[in-house]
Design a protein around this nucleic acid. Sequence first.
DNA 1: AAATTAATGTCGCAC
DNA 2: GTGCGACGTTAATTT
Lengths: 254, 254
Amino acid sequence: MTDTGDGHETAGGDVPEPVIDPSPSAARDAVARAVDLGEMVTVFGRCTVEYDGRAASTLGPGDRLVVLKPDGTALVHTDEGHQPVNWQPPGSTHEVDVTDDELRIESHRTGPEEHLEVTFESITYVTTVDVSDPEKLSLLGTEEDLRERVLAEPALIEPGFEPLATERSTPAGAIDIYGEDADGRAVVVELKRRRVGPDAVGQLDRYVGALIRDLHADREVRGVLVAPSATDRARELLAEEGLEFVALDPTPEE
Amino acid sequence: MTDTGDGHETAGGDVPEPVIDPSPSAARDAVARAVDLGEMVTVFGRCTVEYDGRAASTLGPGDRLVVLKPDGTALVHTDEGHQPVNWQPPGSTHEVDVTDDELRIESHRTGPEEHLEVTFESITYVTTVDVSDPEKLSLLGTEEDLRERVLAEPALIEPGFEPLATERSTPAGAIDIYGEDADGRAVVVELKRRRVGPDAVGQLDRYVGALIRDLHADREVRGVLVAPSATDRARELLAEEGLEFVALDPTPEE
DNA sequence: AAATTAATGTCGCAC
DNA sequence: GTGCGACGTTAATTT
């Protein structure tokens, strides 16, 4: 370590460092070495991108950030948007070479067959670093939280509601909560963590229909959609299908 | 520009360059300046992440790559996966400061209110670059391509099929292709670019139901799902609802 | 490997 | 802004 004199330390030569404005071959060597070692790589520069696989795409020249992860993920990010403009999923294999004095990064996977190719006409920088991340994300406010909330206090659905099973399977899929009302009628509960539209009504309707066929019951099955809110169209469709709605948040309001 | 003697050029001092192993305050200055100038920023280091908004999450210490885009996007990437472990959508505002000798990047947005906070206990590097990307992605093999293919050759659905409208609106949403068969019966066509499951059947069923109510027709409306393939469950549901399936790819096989 | 659904889904478009 | 559906959706879980 080297004391830089301003209170922190600079890593020694064994630690990969960013390469600024590298030649194509220097960039190739740095990227190849890092991919080999299972490090994370970023390359920024002016490039074109070709993709062929489940669909196919082309992207003309522009400045983009390419990220290669040790798990085989590749990401191409432009200056805009949450989503990468192109990518390759985890499990892909990355290759890098120089042709006609241009750096080219290729990523390939099978099942389905997909190929990504990024060709750089200039390279602003390359970074390579070792990554260690043992932590798992802890997330609150999911549909799972909503389910636990209902199971802990079934009366939130309605007085007398009694849950009998979660993830009960039907020919049309698994019912979030299956139970009975105070009169002993079967109740299908479909949970959504956020405001619902027509698609959620269709989903609930399918489950109710499948359960009626499964139980050979004759319309003694109620369907209840549980979500923070519903659109007008969703409420109309619920009414048309004889289904019900209960407003409930995944976590109690503070 | 400076000729480095190996055939390429090094950017001058007016071009932002990566900062390696910076002190928290040096990192803060570099990031603040770049955010101010509308540049793209990457920060790599050991950090914790807190998020609160539509949901809420916490993430313990680990090595991650943080990307700040000029459009207000923030991304936090771990060593694994296509998805960022945490993020903030475009339109958010980023702030950076140093507290207790730790770099902290905060991102905030309204509508809905959401907040992201990344606190670094060490920083491997910071990069800042100007980004210019005038190009739009050109994508082939979408549902739009499938629609054009059917409209160019309606007999791919069946002999005598005649498209009358695309995006025909119904109370339940827009029908991809609305038309008539050889016998003059109304036909609702729902297109999918890939293999379909039960959800697509539910969607088609909703449209058919809405059109029947809309036209006051009495089951003279056919529903046809067009996709490369369908799951067994989807085929069963189609049969139960009296709907049909046509196998078709978005682009012709080569 | 295939099937099914959740997601802080995101994104684009119509209203 | 809300509503609605596509997406190379991805990711997780189960069969």
